[in-house]
Design a protein around this nucleic acid. Structure first.
Lengths: 192, 192
DNA sequence: TATATTTCTTAACTTAAGTGAACGAGTTAT
DNA sequence: ATAACTCGTTCACTTAAGTTAAGAAATATA
């Protein structure tokens, strides 16, 4: 697992052994079972997550209904909104599969950042990248129909369709599970 | 106009007269007429925009149809995706109204940033803020129906509904102009 | 000013998504 | 092993959005 993390970091900055050890000494790694809820609505938490293996899911409960808005899989990180504004969380985060992730908090960041300023550089690049991806994603969602969104997902993240329950996928696509079933049947019909 | 800019900046960092003059010497201010296209699909540009007065709009043309995905009004900034990845733009940016804005590019940033490192601090805060807003926006869009989205907009940015043509608003809400008309009629009926 | 052009609304019809219910398959719990 | 539950699919029905067309009102253009 350590290797996965360092491999990821090395895409952005290079680390000395000292620096690697400093990171390891923080004891970041967690192994969580499928179904575990990492963050609940209303909860105040300072934890940030980075998925090394597995899949976690962000969802709201609105009028008693789960509304999934994002999945995070291998090498994807999530800074919950409640960490940024220090207010109770509006949403839940739970594990779709058995998952290995790192759990960090801004305090740890300060500690490491003052010792190794390169981390700030990486965070800068990372958040810029993330913002850009986010915007493109949003635009894509807005400019396409549920069917197009499903076909897009099939292209861009085919693994998700396999590993995530259909009703969560449906909600992620902005529709009901029944509509997703229908839509898939429609696509199959068109192909033949 | 200068005052508007400095007022905005002062919310994040404080500037000396020297620093203000350095900014003014860059000649950032532009006055653009309604309808002017600032960026075209396919174009490579390094320009970043910050609206001081007026309104600009980001839109795609997909199958000959305009798809508006964002509006930027007073004190809102936009770094086009093509600036980040240095590729031809996938979308257009045009002026909804006569608009006064600043036009900057990353090169100018480097110049000012090396002289006044505080700017980097501001940019950090700004992009973090932006990312957070963006995520909340996306979630809100995903988890609500067109009608709810319209009612939301009525709450959060009532000015937009007045100053922007209905067909652009409709597209922004992810529906057709006809549907927006209908939807508004429906809401009026419910009220009475 | 007169004439286009764009913008908004309304209407009739089509298509797709929401809703409620039922069913079987698979899973979990007892 | 059986019961309870979850999950995905299908069906019939309802509701809302897409489509095409037409016309009125506002704006821009000659």
């Amino acid at each position: 697992m350590k290797n996965l993390l360092f491999e990821f970091i090395s895409k952005y900055i290079s680390l000395t052994e000292d620096e690697k050890n400093a990171i390891l000494s923080l004891d970041l790694f967690r192994s969580v079972k499928k179904g575990t809820i990492l963050l609940k609505e209303g909860q105040k938490s300072q934890d940030e997550y980075f998925v090394l293996k597995g899949c976690i899911r962000k969802y709201y409960i609105i009028n008693g209904e789960e509304k999934t808005t994002a999945f995070f899989t291998e090498m994807e990180g999530l800074v919950p909104h409640c960490v940024i504004n220090n207010a109770p969380s509006e949403y839940f985060i739970s594990c779709v599969e058995d998952t290995i992730l790192t759990v960090t908090n801004p305090g740890m960041g300060v500690e490491v950042n003052t010792k190794f300023p390169k981390f700030q550089v990486m965070c800068g690049i990372l958040s810029e990248e993330l913002l850009a991806k986010q915007q493109i994603n949003f635009d894509e969602f807005k400019t396409s129909s549920p069917e197009q969104r499903y076909l897009n997902l099939l292209q861009s993240r085919p693994d998700l369709i396999q590993r995530v329950p259909q009703h969560q996928l449906a909600s992620f696509l902005g529709i009901k599970p029944q509509s997703l079933s229908r839509l898939r049947a429609r696509i199959l019909e068109k192909k033949s």
